[in-house]
């Protein structure tokens, strides 16, 4: 059976190459929740949401939301721009 399992392992290695080439992004549960909150906020209000909106809608702590948004921004999924009305607030948009 060793040969059979070696053959299967070779096939799995080939599929791993395809999976790697596809470069499918994995979201953590926090990232998924923040991402979903941004989309639903923008769909409901029809305008750009800010960090406070995401904190209030998601029920997550401000620091967790901030860290998650920084990570998503670093990966180029979203962009964070300073709000023209309130310098302490950031507006979220999709890259």
């Amino acid at each position: 059976m060793k040969k059979f399992f070696n053959d299967i392992a070779d096939a799995l290695n080939m599929l791993a190459g395809i999976e790697s080439a596809l470069n499918i992004k994995d979201f953590s549960p926090n990232e998924l929740k923040v991402f979903y909150t941004i989309i639903s906020n923008e769909a409901n209000s029809g305008c750009q949401c800010n960090i406070t909106d995401v904190v209030e809608s998601s029920g997550m702590s401000r620091s967790t939301v901030y860290k998650t948004l920084r990570k998503l921004s670093g990966e180029g999924i979203i962009a964070l721009d300073q709000s023209p009305d309130d310098k302490r607030e950031y507006l979220i948009s999709f890259s």
Binding site: A9, L12, N13, L15, A16, I18, E19, L22, I24
Partner: peptide, 17 residues
């Protein structure tokens, strides 16, 4: 089929890697 297998078997492929 290859792409579907690569997506469906992702947990196994990750652990293999």
């Amino acid at each position: 089929v290859f792409i579907l297998l690569a997506i469906v078997l992702r947990p196994i492929l990750r652990s293999t890697n």
